[in-house]
Every structure is written in structure tokens, then in C-alpha cells.
Write a protein that binds this DNA or RNA. Sequence first.
DNA 1: CGGGCGATACCCT
DNA 2: GGGTATCGCCCGA
Length: 208
Amino acid sequence: MSAMNNVTPRVRWPGKRLNHSFFARPAPEVAPTLLHKVLASRDGRAGRIVEVEAYVGAVDPAAHTYRGKTARNATMFGPAGHMYVYFTYGMHWCCNCVCEGEGQGSGVLIRALEPLRGIELMRAARRGIKADRDLCRGPARLTQALGITGLQDGIDLVRGTEGFAILDDGAPPPVSIVAGPRIGIRVGLDFPWRFHVAGSRYVSGPAR
DNA sequence: CGGGCGATACCCT
DNA sequence: GGGTATCGCCCGA
């Protein structure tokens, strides 16, 4: 019984993993195509992506990478398809997928999920919050629901060998996508790089 | 459903 | 030392 050291159950991915070239494009191009894809954990938790924001190094004053590479943002300058996880407001983790190519510092922040699977695990991770709607509505809520922290900074979402992956489960793309300014920033408001599924109850911010 | 407010620790100037 | 890619709780409607 040498497998006793791994306590976490591993389930089959509920979809097929995306390939590297999907992420190797400019973030504002990748972002809307991530809607209706699935962010999944190997322990069975999964949610459909319904809201994202693109951040682009060098030209985007709202991006963490705007002023160049630092210890905190190093992952964003790495290979596309990896996960950049950062800590904010003294208590919250948020996750992005790195886009374009190495050295660019661009990526897509995942802002909200519609819970699909492992909902009881999500509820436990979210201190028993009852409403499914509130489990993953917001970038820090979804990381908490899926168990994502700084430990996952830099993991490969394409190979999926480190516990998390982004999948295509065959769901059709959204019928309608809303683009607008990003949330929670003071600069870069002229870029319409927030994208969400029109009419989704699982999107953060004021309901449309 | 939406606004106001406090909590919190790390990064970078 | 200032600012932060936020959240939960409270309140009123």
C-alpha cells in the first residue's frame, strides 16, 4: 500500500484538456474563448467559467506585469497555459492562466464559475455557505471553493499533472458575451477586457 | 439586490 | 509607508 501518502481522491477529468496553442495568443483574444470552458480539480471539484478579465503586460497599467518582472509576478512571464496565483488585500488568492508567450506578462483572470461538480466539497471549503450561486461568484471565492492557493502558482493547466486543468466538456460557447471595463481597478479602464456570459446568475458584480 | 465599511499582509516605491 | 485584479456582514428597500 504505497499509495497511502496520497489522501486526495483522483477522479477522471470531466472533459478534454485544452492544448498549449489555445493559450498562446494575446490575452484579450483568449479571454472570451475561455467562457464555458471548465476549471477542474483532480479531487472532483469543477465549475464552468462565466466571467474573465484579460491583462496585458507592458501596455496595460492595470496589469501586475506593467512595470516588469518581479518575484511576485514571475509566473506571468513564463510559459502560456500555466496558472499565475497571487495574494491580494491581505487575505485573498486569485488565479489567472498565462497567455501569449514567455516574456510577455499577459494572462486571463478567472473571475467567476458556475459550480458543476464537487459542490459539497466547495461548500465545506467556503465555510458552509449555502447558496450555490455564491460559491464561486468572484475571483477569491472560486479559489477558496476549489482549494487554490499560492502553492499552485506556476502549475501547468495544460498537462494537468499538478491537480488542476482547464477543460472542454463539449458545451457550446455562450449565445451572447458582454464585454466591458474591468472591475476593481483605477487605471486601464479604457480597455474593454472584462468578458462575461450574458444573463448568467453566477457572474460577480451587479446583476445585469 | 445594492451600497458602505472594516479586515488583512504582502509587494513595491 | 501607501495601495491593493476582494470579501463578508450589515443595513435599507
